[in-house]
């Protein structure tokens, strides 16, 4: 098994993750993270969100780079379509989280991945956001994620990877379960 595991290369440092889990179990305070983002309106429905530092392991963590995520809306919303819509960013967050999880779980289980592809669809009635029908929610009615995975494993083992990834996914949890959101004006 250990021979198999060293042979598998999915680019995930599982030893480091397992080591971190062990350390954090002994020091649960250090496990408290705060993720951050700073957004600025550009024009119309176009905004730019910058992402850099976060808090974790008991202190502020700086990054060498600042990442930017822009959001806008397409022409059918009478917008200029400079960037994806925020809800598409949500889909990409879910895809990124689940796919990272699949790679990590595969590495831990000694499964070599050859390719992992996902397509995502989120259904929404825009009568909600337009305020046209109070019975319709603003957000997605349903999200479908379809994975196509080529890996050195049985179909059952691949399904188990995808199931385990959902079980340990932050974004899957954020989307499927309620979260308190506090919005204030400074």
């Amino acid at each position: 098994m250990s021979e198999l595991q060293t042979a598998v290369q999915n680019g995930v440092n599982v030893e480091a993750l397992l080591g971190a889990r062990k350390d954090l179990e002994a020091m649960p305070q250090a496990a408290e993270f705060t993720w951050k983002a700073a957004c600025e309106w550009i024009n119309g429905t176009h905004s730019k969100t910058e992402i850099s530092g976060f808090f974790g392991l008991g202190e502020d963590q700086a990054r060498e780079k600042t990442f930017a995520v822009e959001t806008d809306h397409p022409a059918v919303f009478a917008s200029e379509d400079h960037a994806p819509t925020p809800v598409e960013i949500v889909l990409s967050g879910l895809a990124g989280c689940l796919t990272a999880g699949i790679a990590a779980v595969a590495q831990n289980r000694g499964i070599q991945l050859n390719s992992v592809k996902a397509t995502l669809e989120g259904d929404m009635s825009i009568l909600g956001i337009l305020g046209a029908d109070p019975a319709i929610r603003n957000g997605f009615n349903a999200i479908r994620v379809k994975y196509n995975i080529d890996a050195e494993a049985s179909d059952e083992d691949i399904k188990a990877l995808v199931a385990q990834s959902q079980k340990r996914s932050a974004v899957f949890d954020i989307i499927t379960n309620p979260t308190n959101v506090f919005v204030t004006v400074e």
Partner: peptide, 15 residues
């Protein structure tokens, strides 16, 4: 309020 993860917990249980 119920979690939207029912399909996955059922998949996990079947597997």
């Amino acid at each position: 309020q119920f979690s939207g993860s029912l399909a996955n917990v059922c998949a996990l249980a079947d597997l």
